[in-house]
Each structure stands twice: as structure tokens, then as C-alpha cells.
Design a protein around this nucleic acid. Structure first.
Ligand code: FES
Ligand code: FES
Lengths: 138, 138
DNA sequence: CTGAATCCTTACTAAATCACTCAAGATGAT
DNA sequence: ATCATCTTGAGTGATTTAGTAAGGATTCAG
């Protein structure tokens, strides 16, 4: 049930950008503040950019900044698109459902479904702004 | 946030044993009913035995059966001991806490803690008997 | 008593994933 | 033009996952 370091690092980066909203921070700056290795962080920021959460400015004095308001960054969405479905099993996933062999008679599926629903609810109710303000589920 | 096949297989095996309470089932029988490869299942049942959830009988006509009442088998405990902590990060784990570098100022920890608490609550409130009866969190 | 059925133990491994690192190119500010 | 920065794509060592394989130990049936 672990979250990978990639997801964790992405959120750290978003938090730092959120704490300096409006400013443009270089990858090196973000790396300093998040303790994420520069060259790994590069890849992660690239992905966050593709997901539309962040924008970049190239060239000297360039860097990254948030593309949207922190209140519009959905944490569940970030994690799901960065490291895959929130459900603990394919058969319980809504966004990337995959059938199980034993599904028709499976006694476990309701459990997995309940876990996925609960986790998804927490994560999807939380925005970057909530985290920045130490406030949860609105 | 995935659950590994080992945990899934262990629960499947326990469910089959629970559905035939009192009887002794051979590994081959359990493998047939769970679709878990025999030689992998051996290892898993061995672990379940060490955890005290199951007992074995050797020799001809031997096999496995539940050691305790299904109502006494805590699903959270099974999963945790078979595949590690329920928390999504070390710093949010109660049973195997590990510090994070950024912990003092970390804005994420409350989120991880909340996820771990919720997941743990669901899993620890559920027993094998609940699953067998398609009933949850009593 | 013997042999077959079964669990037990240990060792091994192919494939996937993770957590990066590295090198070279593109772009923009000065 | 130069330098700081992002961009792109490939490469890699460590770890985990999901098993397989081989042989030994124990019990029961006949
Ligand atoms: S775990 Fe997917 S249907 Fe049972
Ligand atoms: S994630 Fe562990 S303290 Fe922030």
C-alpha cells in the first residue's frame, strides 16, 4: 500500500511552487527545497507540466511556476496520473478497471472497492491549497 | 497503492478454508479453488501457519485448515504481516514508523496519516467472518 | 512394512519496477 | 555570443515480485 517516491516528490515540488506563487523557481531551487535529486526532479516536473499543473520558462533566469490556482490542483488526480490507479486491485478501479478471474463469486471485491472509494474520496477532496493551509477535506 | 498478489492469494486461501470449516483441504485442493499456483501457495500457507491463522496436517490425507474461528481472523493483521505496513509512507506508519527528512515542516504528513488511519480502520474492523458473510465493518 | 500422498525447506530466477544518472540538444536573457 | 536554464532520450544498479524447482520429512492406507 505504499506511495512511490515519485508521487511524493511531485507533491513536494507543487507545495514549494505553491509557497512561492507568482515567482519562477529553477529546478535547482526546487531541488534544494525538496531534497529531490535535480536530474530526477527534471523528469517529474516535465510530467507535471504535461498534466497541466505547472508551466515552464526556458533559458537563463527560467524555471517553473504553477499554472493554476492551488485550489484547483486536485491531489487525487496528481497521484493517479503520476503513479497509477488509486484502487488496490484492478477490479476495484474506476479509472482503469481490469477484470479478475474469480470476479463473479469474489468475496474480496467489496472490500477492495470500499478501500478504493475511501482513499479516492480523501485524495480527491483535497487540493493543493488545502495542504498549503494545513486544512483537509474542505 | 496496490496490494500485492501475495496478500490477495492469502486472503483467497483463508476464504476457501473458511467456506469449508472443519474440513482439511490439501494444497492442491486450495490451489484448484483459488487458481493460485501450487508451489507459490505452499509458501503462502506456510506463512499463514507461522502467523497462527492456519494449521497443517502432514502425510497422506493431510492438508490445511483454519486454526481459529473466522470471526477472530483480522484482515488488517493478515495483510500487514504478509506484505508490510498499511501506511502509504514510513512516517505515517504506527507499527513500523520511520522518520522522514522533511518531517518537522512537512505539509504532506497529515494527509498520509489520514489515509493510513482510514485504511487501517477499514481493514482492522473487518474479519474473515465478515468477508464470508459479505458483511462489512460490523 | 512399504509406498504413496502430502506437507516442509531451501534455493534459484526471470521479469518488472524503482529511483535514479548521464549526455547532448534547444531556448532565451544579457 | 555566451551562459543559464529547460528538454529529450537513453541507460543503469538495486530491489521487489511472482513465481519454479528439487529434494526431504511425515503420516496414512493397504
Ligand atoms: S479481487 Fe478482483 S474480483 Fe476478486
Ligand atoms: S512525507 Fe514523511 S514527513 Fe513528509
Amino acid at each position: 500500500m505504499k506511495i512511490s517516491s515519485k508521487g511524493e516528490y511531485a507533491l513536494r515540488a507543487l507545495l514549494v511552487l505553491g509557497q512561492h506563487e507568482g515567482k519562477v523557481l529553477s529546478i535547482a531551487d526546487i531541488s534544494d527545497k525538496t531534497l529531490v535529486p535535480i536530474s530526477y526532479l527534471e523528469q517529474i516536473l516535465l510530467q507535471l507540466k504535461m498534466l497541466g499543473h505547472v508551466k515552464s520558462k526556458r533559458g537563463s533566469r527560467g524555471g517553473y511556476s504553477l499554472r493554476t490556482n492551488p485550489a484547483d490542483v486536485n491531489i487525487g488526480d496528481v497521484i493517479r496520473r503520476l503513479e497509477g490507479p488509486l484502487a488496490p486491485m484492478g477490479c476495484a478501479s474506476i479509472t482503469s478497471y481490469e477484470p479478475c478471474i474469480l470476479e463473479p463469486t469474489c468475496l474480496l471485491k467489496p472490500l477492495w472497492t470500499r478501500i478504493r472509494d475511501t482513499v479516492a474520496q480523501i485524495l480527491e477532496e483535497t487540493t493543493l491549497a488545502d495542504l498549503l493551509d494545513r486544512r483537509f477535506s474542505r
